[in-house]
């Protein structure tokens, strides 16, 4: 079984007992999780479409056309070796032909920031990108509100997401265990899991929503403090992009951890709520939800 802890397996007899099947994920956690999968997928791909309309990021209120306040710029240029795609990050220029700035087939290259396979729609279409992005933006906001309310009421936020002093103390040990791919499957999350979910749910998702709002001219008038907090509209746009990168990084690590920790058990817990915990975990009490 993929979810058996390795150190226990070494010491225990071959037919070691299974841990209990416990009810771990509430219906709110599971529902919001899958809505986010859908919403973030469309938000990412439509967001890259929108970004392609002006593939550069700046610091401050405005975009420098006659001065330079860009931190990232993607484009294409003619060189002696023919057209090339480039990416300039903090003044450092990289040749990114094939992916950024210039992509598609050699016969019919596309001169776009992010390639067509990473955008919705696959061709340049800012208008449609915005339609998709704002629809799923509302879905994201609504789902986060539902999750926050449910998690406050059922204790998920305090129990599983907020790091306590004990979690902070155990963080180095948990990090070391993760680095050796030794996973403990308990009722709650490990300190590193709590930290990751805290960063996503309490930092990145609110940040991506607020920086998105800070790009709205009407909201800039209504809530002038919002844009000041982020240091100007173009900085807010840059932070929106950085938050996106953070969410993508989380996605990659998250999928890797699910695969390493036992994809069947992890997927089951996110669909049915039931999770095969490590041996020694206290089973569900008869009063609570039990595996029967």
């Amino acid at each position: 079984m993929t979810d058996q802890p390795i150190d226990a397996a070494a010491a225990a007899p071959p037919q070691q007992p299974k841990g209990p099947l416990i009810y771990r994920q509430s219906v709110f956690t599971r529902l919001t999780h899958w809505v986010w999968v859908l919403a973030l997928f469309f938000l990412l791909l439509s967001g890259l479409q929108i970004w392609n309309a002006h593939p550069a990021l700046y610091i401050g209120q405005q975009s420098g056309f006659e001065f330079d306040n860009a931190v990232l710029r993607i484009g294409a240029e003619n060189t002696d070796a023919g057209p090339r795609g480039y990416t300039i990050l903090f003044g450092q220029k990289f040749d990114t032909t094939g992916v950024l700035g210039m992509s598609g087939s050699a016969a019919r290259p596309d001169y776009v920031g992010f390639p067509g396979w990473a955008t919705i729609p696959s061709v340049r279409d800012l208008a449609t990108g915005r339609v998709v992005h704002f629809f799923f933006g509302w879905i994201l906001v609504g789902t986060l509100a539902v999750w926050l309310l449910a998690s406050l009421v059922n204790g998920h936020l305090w129990r599983d997401i907020i790091l306590k002093p004990r979690d902070l103390r155990d963080l180095p040990r948990d990090l070391w265990a993760h680095l050796r791919f030794r996973f403990r499957h308990g009722r709650s999350y490990t300190p590193l899991q709590k930290l990751a979910y805290f960063i996503v749910l309490v930092v990145l998702l609110p940040l991506v929503i607020l920086t998105g709002l800070a790009m709205s001219p009407t909201m800039n008038a209504g809530w002038p403090w919002l844009i000041e907090v982020f240091g100007g509209r173009q900085t807010a746009r840059t932070l929106h992009f950085v938050a996106m990168l953070g969410l993508v990084l989380f996605f990659v690590v998250h999928i890797a951890m699910v695969l390493l920790a036992g994809p069947f058990n992890e997927l089951r817990s996110m669909l049915t709520g039931y999770y095969r915990a490590s041996p020694g975990t206290e089973p569900d009490t008869p009063k609570g939800r039990s595996n029967g």
């Binding site: 999968v37 729609p121 279409d125 449609t128 998709v132």
Partner: peptide, 24 residues
Amino acid sequence: LIGLSAAGASSLLLAGCNQFDFLA
């Protein structure tokens, strides 16, 4: 259910190319 959802999720991820161009 788990198998189906895994298949569904992976097709969603592979769909980035032009499956959603009808939205235009």
